[in-house]
Amino acid sequence: MLKLAVAPVPYHWPRARILSFYADLAKAPCEILYLGETVCAKRRALTPQDWLDLAETLRAAGKEVLLSSLSLIEAASEVSTQRRLCAGSEFLIEANDLGAVTRLRGREFVAGPGINLYNPRFLTRLHALGMRRWIVPIELSRQGLETMQAHCPVDVETEVIGWGRLPLAHSARCFTARVQGLAKDECALSCADHPDGLVLYTQNEQPFLCLNGVQVQSALSHCLIDAVETLQQLGIHSLRLIPQSEGFDAVLRTFDQVRRGATTASSAVEALGRLAPTGLCNGYFHGISGMDWVAPPQVPQGQASLDAPAPRKQ
């Protein structure tokens, strides 16, 4: 059965919230947990030792636990942090920059969504270097995924992002600080005020993007609930769900019910539409604009195929 994996928390949550989030996940129907700060090195709600302690606790609770590395590495201090993470860990590392792969030479690793892995040739090279699992780049369509699966070595696991606000870009600039009129060096960690990021609207009030410090996400939540069966048939190992501050336990339960066949995808879509902060998208999977929504074919006529469930204002 398709495993459910929880991506690292992309937002700057306070320590207590992170700990209670994972305390809940310890009992939740998911098998894989990725821990760590992947967006901004200035966020230090948990120390490296705290993350390791948490990882131990969750492993003892029966979860497969991995530690994820920072996505965009600029400062020498960030290089050092990554080197320590790669050198000292008994947990499998999710590399979000090829620099981490350099430091993990000779050991197994997971290639995170920050690594541009688009073709079998590079897949084979990373496999030879120790890649045990890869997270499919968000831009790969179902067709692209099928081709990659056909060429994927049998001992490499494939993980697909199935839920959440998509990581669309990273920058040297902190957009959350910029909105507040603050310089990056005096950001006061203002991203902590936005547990699901800060929605950017177009001038005709369409929720478009979501600012999360130096990361830009989609405002819409990418949702592959209706592709669960297809993904199982393609031999996908795990489906990755990106955390959000409210209703994530319900999201997880919904995906669990669908993978077990206890709920149909079409009824789950309605529930998930209510759980998404600003609506759903799945266009990337269908090879079209990522922000588009292609409804499952089972949905009764009357709901236009390209209309996402009504956005819910934050």
């Binding site: 541009n116 780049p137 831009e139 998509l166 669309l168 040297a172 830009v216 990337y284 079209i288 990522g290």
Partner: peptide, 18 residues
């Protein structure tokens, strides 16, 4: 944005630099 890590264009149009 960091080049090679920006998917904004394909999110809107289906086509990106990558």
């Amino acid at each position: 944005m960091a080049e090679g890590r920006c998917y904004l264009s394909s999110y809107v149009t289906g086509e990106s630099p990558n």
